[in-house]
Amino acid sequence: MNSRKDETDPMNKEEIVEGKSSRRSFLKGLSIAAAASSAALVTGGCSLESLPKSREELGLKWETYFQENYRLMTQEEKDQTVERLTRQAKLEDNLDIHISSQPPREKVLYGYAFNISRCEGFMDCVEACVQENNLDRNAKTQYIRIFEMEPGKLDPSTGDGKYFHKVPVDDKFYMGVQCFHCENAPCIKACPVKATWREPDGIVVVDYNWCIGCRYCMAACPYYGRRFNWGEPSVPEEEITRQQHYLGNRKRMKGVMEKCTFCIQRTRQGKLPACVEACPTGSRVFGNLLDPDSEIRFVLKNKKVFRFKEELGTDPKFWYFID
């Protein structure tokens, strides 16, 4: 999982960036490397106890490095992959997690609706999302953004996205933005390595192991829906959500993209996404678009709905509605 970052020596990399490399530092680096390798030779013969474990760990790392694109795997290979990742989490971080490879269900297309006249900006959704999806606490990554909006404006870029005061404020309304899971998603087209795609149930996902971190998708997304891991994400151990999905809230690496997945680990089990369950005002409606009896279909049929930047033709599966 971490093979990529080990390719370059961090010390040398820093020097290259800062342009301070000199003959002296080069020799210093060389001598350290020599000492390290000789130490490895010496200890390699002694520590027999730790050897089998580390050998397994290295083997798993090796397999992960040569892992196929998730989309091209058979279900059997997917199951093996998540099993390996679960084992790796145990070996590397001593974590008992469960990673699922649950496939999409037949006749299901997920859709989302957001009531802008009912949201009061409490941001319980954001908090629930951060916890459910194991979002990086260092970088304060958030999939959802809530904007405090002036009446009459419907573009979140005109709203206040940095508010932190008692809500709701009179004569303001609140608008939440996250990944809209476009049916015609620009981010998917932009990806040069096909590490992101739309699943048959409509969820746009990222294969974190296949992503090269070029951030083309981030630039392509007209909704600012994608997030990049500039550093190694960190979550306090006691706060880690153990029920995970390969395409969802499992551990991300430094230098990969991530985004809202409609809580794929929950929704594929029939549960509501964390944000929907957490919302105290009932502004968030989620359901199966292909089921005429679903709540989301009721909203689309009976309420005044609109989609954000619909004119771009991205065909998002996220509607805003008013009472």
């Binding site: 009061e120 900006g121 409490f122 941001m123 319980d124 954001v126 908090e127 951060v130 304060k140 958030q142 953004r145 809530i146 904007f147 979140p156 870029s157 996205g161 940095k162 508010y163 932190f164 005061h165 008692k166 809500v167 709701p168 600012y224 105290p280 005002t281 009932g282």
Partner: peptide, 24 residues
């Protein structure tokens, strides 16, 4: 379940967390 019948309007309170700025 959501509205206390005697005072059904939600009370004003601080948001559960903060929001981040939109990067342009």
């Amino acid at each position: 379940t959501c509205h206390p019948a005697h005072a059904p309007k939600f009370k004003k309170r601080m948001p559960a967390t903060y929001s981040l700025p939109l990067t342009k």
